[in-house]
């Protein structure tokens, strides 16, 4: 069953000459239980896609159905309630409130549900136990390591028992050990039936996904099924051609990726890429 259904969704930022096309008529359907990795170079619209799916942002054009319900035109408050009940966010920079303890951070979504203090702290504590950082529940974020912080953030994302987990580069700020820990945690959550969408630059991590979506300049250029435990085929080609550690390498990797794409898909998507986006006007101006 289609949980997320995007149909020709576009997102524009700014006005006039400064208009930026962040999403260009993206159509994407994600079913319940999928573990989707989204890959692409910086500025390709991955984060915007995550924000639109997560109801933090509204599409400028197109339709978005969540759980069969049209949500692209909901009010800010209705979106907030859906975020609260159905969606859990995990961010690259954790986004924990620095003045609250780990426990209070995890309990935050429950606060907005109107749950009593004792009940929500109990649930939050159980959730911290699940992600393995219960011993740190009274620590402030400043006293925790990056891996622990992301575990706390995952606990917060899970505490409302959401259908969808959206993770925007959850390992982008972590060392490889913590990255694996976090990804294994996400894999475990996926096994329990949650739908997970995550953004990554690291092709290695596609081995956790059941599906990999490649983006470029606001559009989806390739979409392939992947097997858990194996790096996705397209990503693998890139991975073993060039070690992707720095951003330039990432970008180089993406251009390799373009070449690595199956010819059929690349031909089909070519017109989309050819359309020059206003975004490039800006970057060109910068280059000059």
């Amino acid at each position: 069953m289609a949980l997320i259904e995007l149909q020709d969704v576009s997102k524009l930022y700014g006005f006039g000459d400064a208009t930026t096309l962040a999403l260009d008529e993206v159509s994407l359907t994600i079913n319940k239980g999928e573990f989707v990795a989204v890959m692409g170079p910086s500025g390709c619209g991955k984060s915007t896609l995550m924000n639109v799916i997560g109801l933090l942002d509204k599409p400028s054009h197109g339709q978005y159905r969540l759980d069969g319900k049209l949500v692209s035109r909901l009010s800010a408050n209705q979106s907030a309630k859906i975020r609260r009940d159905k969606i859990g966010f995990i961010f690259q920079f954790f986004n924990l409130l620095p003045k609250l303890t780990a426990l209070e951070n995890v309990a935050l979504p429950l606060t907005y549900k109107g749950m009593s203090v004792t009940k929500r702290l109990k649930i939050a504590s159980e959730m911290l136990d699940r992600v393995g950082v219960q011993s740190r529940e009274y620590y402030l974020p400043g006293q925790l390591s990056g891996g622990q912080l992301q575990c706390v953030a995952i606990a917060r994302a899970l505490v409302n028992n959401p259908q969808i987990i959206i993770a925007d580069e959850p390992t982008g700020n972590l060392d490889s050990g913590s990255s694996r820990l976090v990804m294994e945690l996400l894999a475990e959550i996926h096994k329990m039936g949650n739908t997970i969408i995550f953004v990554t630059h690291n092709p290695e991590l596609t081995r956790f996904a059941t599906r990999v979506v490649y983006m470029h300049d606001g559009g989806i250029i390739h979409d392939e099924a992947s097997t858990i435990g194996r790096v996705a085929t397209t990503a693998r080609k890139v991975l073993y051609t060039i070690p992707a550690t720095r951003e330039e390498d990432d970008l180089a990797g993406v251009s390799l990726l373009m070449k690595a794409l199956p010819s059929k898909s690349s031909v089909a998507k070519q017109p989309v890429i050819k359309v020059k986006k206003p975004r490039t006007i800006k970057s060109k101006a910068k280059a000059k």
């Binding site: 997560g54 408050n77 986004n95 924990l96 409130l97 907005y112």
Partner: peptide, 16 residues
């Protein structure tokens, strides 16, 4: 502002 953003992301309504 960031705190407000985080609170909104986890489901706080404008009124809250």
């Amino acid at each position: 502002v960031r705190e407000i953003g985080i609170r909104k992301a986890v489901g706080a309504t404008n009124r809250q």
